[in-house]
Amino acid sequence: MTAETIAPKARRTPVGPRILGGVLVLLGLGLFWEAWRAEGEVTLGGPRLAPIIVTGLWVVFAVIYLLRQIFAPAADYPEPEGEDEHADSVHTPLDWKAPAIVAVLLAAYALLLEPAGFVLATGAFYLGVTRALGSKKIVREVIVALVLSFGVYLAFTRLLEISLPEGVLPL
């Protein structure tokens, strides 16, 4: 790493915060509109005041945030000093692949939980996530997946009497 690459001007201003600011403003406006057009009169003691205040505050501060990102980005997210390998900020490139896979696996897990049952869904989910997070020891993870899914199922349903979806396996 040479001095030039760490010098502030050599790096581009990260674009992430600006996108986030834009999304926050749009989302805030949408929610404000939802609060504004709700039924009933707006009164001090009524149920309509709080939603309007909260979403209004959201819009105001989202606009401030967005303007700061456009005109003074360094104020909110200063350049990291030195080279800390564990440092994490908007300046480090986002490794989006692993979290995206985990997010998809989570959605599948929730949707399969009831139809397939806790044991099958959990075993498959565990294997998927460990793999997405870079585990190479497949045999070990299969054993853990079996122990975890059966063990937790039996512990919760038999010992704690909390019901979990049975699904297709005859348990």
Binding site: T130, L133, E141
Partner: peptide
């Protein structure tokens, strides 16, 4: 990897057990 896969499983159980709803 095992740790966070396990945390996600228990997070899911936690919410499901309290709410009973996917």
């Amino acid at each position: 990897p095992s740790l966070y896969a396990g945390i996600l499983v228990f997070a899911t159980i936690g919410v499901y057990a309290v709410s009973g709803s996917v």
